[in-house]
């Protein structure tokens, strides 16, 4: 006790000032990070690489099937966000399993695995857009190339934050108020697939697949895909779905050849019921 009594306000004020200064500095340094960071640059292409010879290139086509009954989508409760709730005449629903026409499956990322290092591909400069509308992402699943611009648009009259959670790319989290200009970003490394979420509206989920070649497509309403300009060779056709995971098939493409592939996912009740 006697020790503490010898401390006088004057002697401790210096330490307090240092403490306050350290805190202020820490806050200032921390405030500088985390927001509005520029995109990473994609790795440079192989200088010896050459374009794919269109005269011998082939095509891989096909469709993604769903074997069984898709789980029922769940209604999303948007009561906390009237701006979005009023945009849906019927309750918005989850999009984790969306059947297509004729027993097919939508929102499947189909891509080719193989060695494309000897080929060069023209850089993609037209932005791929993901829109936030009715507090849902449109599209729910998208794919793009490394370095390809991603434009994030907010069509809602409410604030969103866009937060991809990648494993191999840089994580970022940016806010976007209503009427704000699009957020432009890109991804430097291939990754299938990056979950995207809005922490303001926890039901908002999307996936972004990133590739270092143009051999990919996301299935639409017909569950079909067409991958063109494929150099002759043997590849693994891979289909990725957010609930059902990945499924693969080998395919060999001869010069100017077109092959069809059908991949079927089993409709296990993994999503919801």
């Amino acid at each position: 006790m006697s020790k503490s009594r010898t401390l006088r306000p004057g002697s401790s004020s210096g330490a307090l000032w240092y403490f306050a200064a350290a805190i202020t500095l820490a806050v200032a340094m921390m405030s500088c990070g985390g927001k509005g960071q520029p995109s990473e640059t994609a790795a440079p292409a192989n200088p010896a690489a050459k374009p794919v010879d269109a005269a011998t290139a082939g095509t891989v086509t096909g469709s993604i099937k769903l074997d069984g009954t898709a789980p029922k989508p769940r209604n999303i409760n948007m009561a906390a966000e009237p701006n979005c709730a009023t945009q849906h005449s019927t309750p918005a629903q989850t999009e984790d399993v969306v059947p297509g026409d004729g027993g097919t499956l939508q929102n499947v990322v189909v891509y080719l695995k193989g060695d494309f290092s000897q080929y060069s591909f023209p850089p993609m400069s037209t932005p791929v857009t993901i829109d936030q509308k009715g507090c849902q992402y449109h599209p729910h699943v998208l794919a793009l190339e490394t370095g390809e611009p991603l434009s994030v648009v907010n069509s809602d009259q409410t604030t969103h934050n866009i937060h991809p959670v990648p494993k191999d790319n840089r994580e970022w989290n940016e806010s976007q108020p209503p009427g704000a200009s699009p957020i432009m970003q890109s991804f430097a490394r291939p990754e299938v697939s990056i979950p995207v979420k809005c922490n303001v509206h926890p039901w908002m989920k999307a996936y972004i697949a990133v590739f270092n070649n143009p051999y990919f497509q996301v299935t639409g309403k017909d569950g079909a895909f067409t991958i063109k300009n494929v150099p002759p060779g043997t590849y693994t056709v891979t289909a990725w779905h957010e609930v059902y995971g990945s499924s693969e098939q080998m395919v060999t493409i001869g010069p100017s050849e077109s092959k069809s592939v059908t991949i079927t996912f089993k409709a296990i009740s993994a999503a919801s019921d």
Partner: peptide, 26 residues
């Protein structure tokens, strides 16, 4: 519990202000 930890991406301010729109996770 509401998975709202990153609904405000900046700090110490919230959306650059002391009075952000109090919607959803914000």
């Amino acid at each position: 519990s509401n998975d709202a930890g990153l609904s405000v991406p900046d700090w110490p301010l919230s959306y650059g202000s002391l009075t952000p729109p109090m919607v959803g996770g914000i």
